[in-house]
C-alpha cells in the first residue's frame, strides 16, 4: 500500500512541499507538477530536504512543467526522475491513492 503525493506549489512560496515530505512514507512517490517543479532544483534552500528523501521516496517532476519553466534536466537534483503525462497516469494507477498537497 502506497500513496502518490502531488505538489503544485513552489517551495519558496508555501510550506506544501515541506509538509508533504514530512508526511509521506517510505515507498511512496512524490510528483512535482506546475510550480511544484521548482522544488526539484539543485542548489536551493530546500535541496537538502528533498535530496534526503530520495532514498526512501521516489521523487518525480512532470517534464512538461519543468521544460515550460526552463529547468534543464542537469539543474535537477540527482535521483529525481522526469515523467510525461502518461507517466503521471501510471503513477496514479500504481499507487493506492493520490493525495494533492494544494
Amino acid at each position: 500500500m502506497s500513496t502518490l503525493h502531488t505538489v503544485n506549489k513552489s517551495p519558496f512560496a508555501t510550506g506544501s512541499l515541506a509538509s508533504c515530505l514530512a508526511h509521506c512514507k517510505d515507498g511512496d512517490a512524490v510528483l512535482m507538477i506546475e510550480d511544484g517543479v521548482y522544488g526539484g532544483l539543485s542548489g536551493t534552500a530546500v535541496a537538502d530536504l528533498v535530496q534526503q528523501k530520495t532514498g526512501s521516496v521516489a521523487i518525480y517532476v512532470l517534464s512538461a512543467d519543468s521544460e515550460a519553466r526552463g529547468l534543464a534536466a542537469e539543474k535537477l537534483l540527482q535521483g529525481i526522475k522526469g515523467v510525461d503525462y502518461d507517466g503521471f497516469v501510471d503513477l496514479v494507477a500504481d499507487h493506492d491513492r493520490t493525495q494533492s498537497w494544494l
Binding site: T3, R97, T98, Q99, S100, W101
Partner: peptide, 9 residues
C-alpha cells in the same frame, strides 16, 4: 493518511 481509500484535499 496512508490508511485511506479516498483523500480529498
Amino acid at each position: 493518511m496512508a490508511d485511506q481509500d479516498v483523500v480529498l484535499s
